[in-house]
Write a protein that binds this DNA or RNA. Structure first.
Lengths: 223, 223
DNA sequence: TTGAATTATGATATAATGTTCATAATTAAT
DNA sequence: ATTAATTATGAACATTATATCATAATTCAA
């Protein structure tokens, strides 16, 4: 159940959106003015803000700035027309998306869900076979069981996950984890880490299925 | 320098976009058909895909599915008109955004940058005062200098960052980090960790400005 | 098949982490 | 002011992490 703050002063739109969004399993709370919006954001927790650009007491950009400076809430602008929203300044202010009125309700839902997914409010979990990494918590698990990865093992796993499909050279991996080209850490250190990580995440560490060796080039995980 | 795969078969658009995006410091590579696109994605690394919905050899949705099943690349659809893109199926397929032709170049740039920011391909960095956390790399820094956080310290910091503005009770924190309600780890363990984390991230650990004690309730960081 | 290069493994010293204890400092209420 | 509760600190300890060495196994090419 995600909770949405609707900053809007047009009663018809308010009623329509509250009715529609409630059906879609969202909890909606309305603020009609800038101050009300900012106060609500300060005193309650929301998952997303729908923000009308043109409010009776001023434009929504100021509200967006205020919200973004206080929270990490995603903001979707509602605009009277596509042109009203300057994407350049809008996105610069930290807006996550915008939608022009009149919009089809289903499009609004899609955009809301999309933004929630992208901003990770619903959790940003990445999967690699049966290994799951939760970058929000900073943890990893295999088949639902917690993996106890050290800081370096975790970072090494992240590098592979964020470069799925690509062969990672030893140099690239060393740079990613140790920030240097291999002059200061022993070249074998990486090999040892690969081994240790494999021992924790692979079903059969001797025949790795996740982190594969690409002889002469480096290592890779399939996409 | 982000690398973009442009899947488009109209030569005029290709030329325009390559010229414009190159000026904006993007590296652009073009694929004219479905197979070319999928092959490129498999053999090269990109940061984002711009995907025309209507290609000569079929519609772009199939390409989107193929890309998303193989990679975690963000995809922005280019559509001839707003209606052509079904936001419902489009977003369900994993599309990250879409833009209807004709679009203003600056809007395209804004949307590209926005998606890159949201999907974290440019790094999903969260800031807490002068402390930055990069959950893509699994690292943290203060004033640009690397912090060497242990696995538990890093996770504790993430809990605070993901709950900015809220008071976190000792029980909640213990549950977040140790997955238990405090029965198995000593109650003081958390206190010691708070102290150690403060020593690494606070300017003056004796007078913490980031992680504040809320006596009787727990700890909180401001939003 | 042999040899050189690459990758894997096992063992080890050192440093850091994780947990607990004992004790001090702080705060709020009586 | 005294007391009780809460939070902070310092130090001790067992455990784990980290980096390196030596050595083994593997692969590829001559």
């Amino acid at each position: 159940m995600n909770k949405i703050l609707l900053v809007e002063d047009d009663n018809e739109i308010i009623d329509n959106l509250i009715e529609f969004l409630s059906k879609e399993e969202f909890i909606v709370k309305n603020a009609k003015g800038q101050n009300a919006a900012i106060e609500l954001v300060e005193n309650e927790t929301f998952d997303l803000v729908l923000l009308d650009v043109s409010l009776a007491d001023g434009n929504g950009f100021a509200v967006c700035s205020a919200i973004k400076s206080k929270t990490c809430l995603p903001v979707i602008f509602l605009t009277a027309s596509g042109d009203e929203f300057s994407t350049v300044t809008g996105f610069d202010l930290g807006a996550d998306d915008y939608i022009a009125k009149p919009f089809r309700p289903r499009e609004l839902i899609s955009r809301i869900k999309n933004v929630l997914r992208l901003t990770g409010t619903t959790g940003s979990i990445t999967q690699l076979g049966d290994v799951m990494v939760d970058t929000v918590k900073g943890t990893a698990s295999k088949k639902g069981k917690d993996l106890f990865l050290s800081a370096l093992e975790y970072r090494l796993l992240l590098v592979f996950i964020n470069n799925r499909g690509a062969v990672m050279t030893r140099t690239k991996l060393l740079e990613s984890i140790w920030d240097i080209a291999g002059d200061f850490v022993n070249d074998n250190t990486l090999t040892v880490y690969i081994k240790r990580l494999r021992e924790k995440i692979e079903d059969d560490p001797q025949n790795p299925e996740i982190i594969k060796t690409v002889r002469g080039l480096g290592y890779k995980v399939d996409a």
